[in-house]
């Protein structure tokens, strides 16, 4: 079965004069992990909340598991797990009590104790929600999304603000979800997260899809490698460029960090180091790297993903 789990066509959402989503289209294959990657304010949350039925499309069409998320919400809700960016629990409710409550609304919930343990919530099960740390609240939010054994989960920034260990716990959980056939849609502004988890990535900015593909497709579409190094700020990049093969360009961004783009060959590398030797500068942290999603994003928008 390859039916799409989520279909968004030409979605437009405006808040007053501001256009949050501007003709966005995307498709999520059933059983995939799909990442919506973009900087803050790109329209990720608005898009995902429209899929969750919180907002009615002002223009365009949204279908989730073949259903209309607003008019067929009652049929859809038990099948879809939602992790909100923040909040969503009574301040006095205990962590496991909240999980028990949401579990009890479902026909076939996951075993609550095992789920809490898996998410590292075992030790704070009796702690009131307001006294949980931000990371614990986040993991509880993830548990609440999963406890009903949904077909599809929407995770809005699932690891924002988590410490590295908790991020890895979440990542391994997402990998298990895929293994067990749960479709996952997640938003993130961490490109390593998208590269590691997603089978398909939509890069969005200003409410539009800039590009999409598997992480490999996106990074290899930009075939060239990148040479980067650090050296004193203010090197003469024009003269360095002139000493390189014709289609290479050198940029300094931020000061003291140099990047050589273009057709990078061993000869290019030799030319860079030869020029550095000539001006008596040591290129530190010299590396030749495959471009990352971050570079792809920078190419497309001219701005950093994380800011």
């Amino acid at each position: 079965m390859t039916a799409a789990a989520v279909e968004v066509e030409d979605l437009v959402m405006r808040y007053g004069a501001k256009t949050a989503v501007d003709g966005l289209s995307l498709t999520v294959e059933a059983g995939s992990v799909t990442a919506i990657l973009g900087p803050n304010g790109a329209g990720k949350t608005t898009t995902i909340e429209t899929c969750e039925g919180y907002r009615t499309p002002q223009s365009g069409r949204v279908r989730v598991l073949g259903l209309d998320p607003v008019s067929q919400h009652r049929r859809l809700a038990p099948r879809v797990g939602v992790m909100l960016q923040a909040g969503g629990a009574w301040s006095a409710v205990r962590a496991v009590e909240m999980l028990d409550y949401v579990a009890a609304l479902h026909q076939n919930p996951l075993p609550v104790a095992a789920l809490a343990e898996r998410l590292g919530l075992g030790s704070c099960g009796r702690t009131p929600y307001r006294r949980l740390s931000g990371g614990q609240q986040q993991r509880l939010g993830l548990a609440l999304a999963l406890v009903g054994r949904p077909d599809l989960v929407f995770l809005d920034e699932p690891t924002a603000g988590l410490d590295p260990q908790a991020r890895r716990t979440t990542w391994s959980l997402v990998e298990d979800l895929r293994r067990d056939g749960v479709t996952v849609v997640l938003t993130t502004h961490y490109m390593d997260e998208a590269e590691r988890l997603a089978s398909y990535v939509y890069v969005v900015d200003h409410g539009r899809v800039l590009t999409s593909g598997t992480p490999q497709e996106l990074t290899s579409a930009r075939a060239q490698n990148i040479i980067s190094f650090q050296a004193p700020a203010g090197l003469d990049t024009v003269r360095l460029t002139a000493s390189l093969p014709p289609d290479c360009t050198v940029t300094e961004r931020p000061p003291g960090n140099y990047q050589v783009d273009g057709l990078v060959t061993p000869q290019t590398l030799a030319a860079v180091t030869a020029w550095c030797a000539q001006v008596d500068v040591m290129p530190e942290h010299l590396s030749v790297a495959k471009p990352t999603l971050e570079d792809v994003f920078l190419d497309l928008t001219g701005r950093e993903l994380r800011s």
Partner: peptide, 13 residues
């Protein structure tokens, strides 16, 4: 590793 499996089985009470 816990033996938790997430195989979908949704439904409301």
């Amino acid at each position: 590793m816990s033996g938790l499996t997430f195989t979908p089985s949704p439904g409301a009470r």
